[in-house]
């Protein structure tokens, strides 16, 4: 497992960098509008009604954006969590933490693909 993860490091670091970009560029605006402004009623009437939100999300660009918005930040978080735990607990914890983080990221990637496909 250790050698497999070492071989996959370039892919994992590419996903990590992509996750930083997506998370930093897009997440703040999405979180503010979707998770703060919409529930508090700060948006115009009907701006995020079900029909409009579904139409935005279900077209190919919307599906791709949502898939990227879920998957890349999760890979970023998984890799960052691995290294955060190494900083705190030492390299010995990596034998358990790295496979757990990347397995979780793989599972979330699969679930996101199915969920976005069902839109």
């Amino acid at each position: 497992m250790k050698h497999l993860i070492a071989r996959l490091e370039p892919v994992i670091w590419a996903l990590f960098g992509g996750g930083f970009f997506v998370g930093c560029l897009l997440m703040p605006a999405f979180i503010f509008m979707l998770c703060i402004a919409a529930p508090l009623g700060w948006l115009p009437e009907g701006a995020l009604s079900y029909e409009r939100a579904h139409a935005l999300a279900a077209n190919p660009i919307g599906r791709l954006a949502l898939f990227v918005l879920i998957v890349l930040p999760f890979w970023n978080g998984a890799n960052h969590l691995r290294h955060f735990v190494i900083d705190l607990r030492g390299i010995r914890s990596d034998g358990v933490v790295a496979p757990a983080c990347y397995a979780a990221a793989l599972v979330v990637t699969g679930i996101a693909a199915v969920a976005v496909g069902k839109l």
């Binding site: 998370g23 979180i31 079900y50 918005l69 879920i70 930040p73 978080g77 979330v108 996101a112």
Partner: peptide, 25 residues
Amino acid sequence: GACCVFFLLSSLLFLRVVDALAAGP
């Protein structure tokens, strides 16, 4: 480093948003 928790949890939150959109009004 600790901000990785927000990356993980917010991704899952957006997964919930997609699930709700697929489930209906």
